[in-house]
Design a protein around this nucleic acid. Structure first.
Length: 470
DNA sequence: ATGTAC
């Protein structure tokens, strides 16, 4: 079969595993990522496990992995969601032409960096950072609708966010004090690693009608924000993996890797994780919404533009209950983006005829895509597409390990050349070599490997004008 | 991803 490989059941695997990608991508899949995917196929109640073309090794399940379990008989696994719960991307349209924004790219970038904190441990610069304990609880339990009451979101923002920016049942009672302490000052912060905020030029339109429905046209301008739940989500993930590690044997669950700690979905520990995960998911949606709110302020002050419409906000590290042929399942998406096609009842009204916009960012300096899923996407990948380009080398390999006298594979010069013509800034002051385009796969090849077999329909390609890195 | 090692 074109652009996919099937690994038949073996050992403890309960289902076959499929990995999607061009033959070039498939030839280069890391052994470790493959093992991790096969481990996912061993968990109780699993009914499908697949890898997307951005697959690379992660903690527990690989990044670019989808693990589907039966909602009645299956388990929930924090390692199959990821450390950064509801890491995700939102895209907005800017009502200006590329030529009108380009001369201001540097200045916009500086102004945005002044209001959006970046880097590990970054603390909020938004007024929202001063929320009381009670308001924090309301925000993480209520998500973007609760944030709307504070004036940081519009009804359209709510409508254009996956799950309307509000996952249930979210109770802070299932969240440790430590997680709250870490999260309190981090609403409206970008974080680090591959997180970014980017102003982009629409460089190619594949489907003008759908692009128009998304508020985009050739040589128009878009904005993308990629970040997650910061220390709050990380702490929640760790807390619950630890709790599950102690109790999963009681349920007779012995995952092939401790990093895939899991418990029955309906067990007290499973319900507690899903509730805490919902808090982290809501935190991340609120986080991205606050950042968009702050960026709207910058565009208003600097260019007199006050209408940056949210196109859509997708989660790419999350577990969700969904229906497939009247069967209720829990879909773990780790570095995988939901891409429900036209007609799906969970797609907001305004996108019911086009399909939900799915956002696939590239590495810094390279193309990102907005795509839609198809009926085949529902059947083959459980409504999922890749979440980005995917790494081709570890951060350590890119930067090198001076202590061991090992040089990095990416040079400063190579990095600068790959960023020519793009305004960029690192919030954390790092050299960003580990984020260089050459440390990632070619996003065009990655997306095309799904497009060629009808699992995505490309709508637009965008190129960076200005990038704020975490 | 991450107060970059509980």
């Amino acid at each position: 079969m074109k652009n996919r490989v099937v690994i038949s059941k073996q050992g403890c695997m309960r289902v076959d595993v499929t990995i999607f990608g061009s033959s070039h991508i498939l030839r280069n899949v890391e052994e470790e990522a493959l093992e991790q995917l096969k481990n996912g196929a061993c968990l109780p109640g699993v009914i499908a496990c697949c890898g997307l073309p951005d697959i690379h090794s992660g903690y527990g399940l690989p990044i670019g992995g989808v693990m589907v379990v039966d909602a009645q008989t299956g388990v929930v696994s924090p390692g199959a969601v990821g450390v950064d719960i509801n890491c995700g991307v939102r895209a907005a349209s800017v009502p200006l032409r590329y030529a009108e924004v380009q001369p201001h790219a540097e200045r916009l970038l500086r102004k945005i960096a002044a209001v959006v904190a970046t880097g590990v441990g970054g603390k909020t610069r938004s007024e929202i950072g001063k929320v009381t304990n009670q308001q924090f609880r309301r925000l993480v339990e209520g998500g973007v609708p609760a944030l709307m009451e504070l004036g940081y979101a519009t009804p359209a923002d709510v409508e254009c966010t996956e799950e309307r920016g509000h996952l249930t049942p979210a109770s802070l009672d299932n969240v440790s004090r430590r997680a709250v302490e870490r999260g309190e000052g981090q609403i409206g912060t970008l974080g680090s690693g591959n997180h970014f905020l980017e102003i982009q030029r629409v460089s190619e339109v594949y489907d003008a009608e759908t692009a128009k429905a998304f508020g985009l046209e050739l040589d128009g301008v878009s904005l993308m924000i990629h970040c997650g739940s910061r220390g709050f989500g990380e702490q929640i993930c760790r807390d619950h993996i630890q709790a599950m590690g102690k109790t999963m044997e009681r349920y007779g669950i012995h995952p092939p890797s401790r990093n895939l700690a899991s418990v029955p979905i309906s067990s007290p520990e499973g319900r507690a994780y899903l509730s805490a995960m919902a808090c982290a998911a809501n935190f991340a949606w609120v986080n991205r919404q606050v950042i968009l709110h702050e960026v709207r302020g910058v565009f208003k002050r600097e260019l007199g533009v006050d209408k940056l419409d949210l196109i859509y906000d997708v989660a790419h590290n999350i577990a969700k209950f969904e229906m497939y042929d009247s069967r209720k399942v829990l879909v773990h998406r780790k570095g995988a983006t939901r891409a429900f096609p036209a007609g799906h009842p969970d797609v907001p009204e305004r996108y019911r005829a086009t399909g939900q916009p799915a956002i696939i960012p590239g590495s810094m300096g390279t193309a990102s895509f907005i795509v839609v899923g198809t009926p085949a996407t529902m059947k083959e990948t459980w409504g999922s597409v890749n979440h980005g380009a995917g790494r081709v080398m570890s951060r350590a390999a890119a930067v090198g390990e001076p202590r061991k006298g090992r040089p990095g594979l990416i040079t400063e010069q190579q990095f600068r050349e790959s960023m020519r013509g793009i305004a960029y800034m690192s919030g954390s002051g790092e050299n960003m070599l580990d984020e260089a385009p050459a440390a990632y796969k070619n996003n065009v090849e990655v997306v095309d490997s799904l497009a060629e077999i009808g699992l995505v329909k490309k709508i637009v390609k965008v190129l960076p004008l200005a990038v704020l890195k975490g």
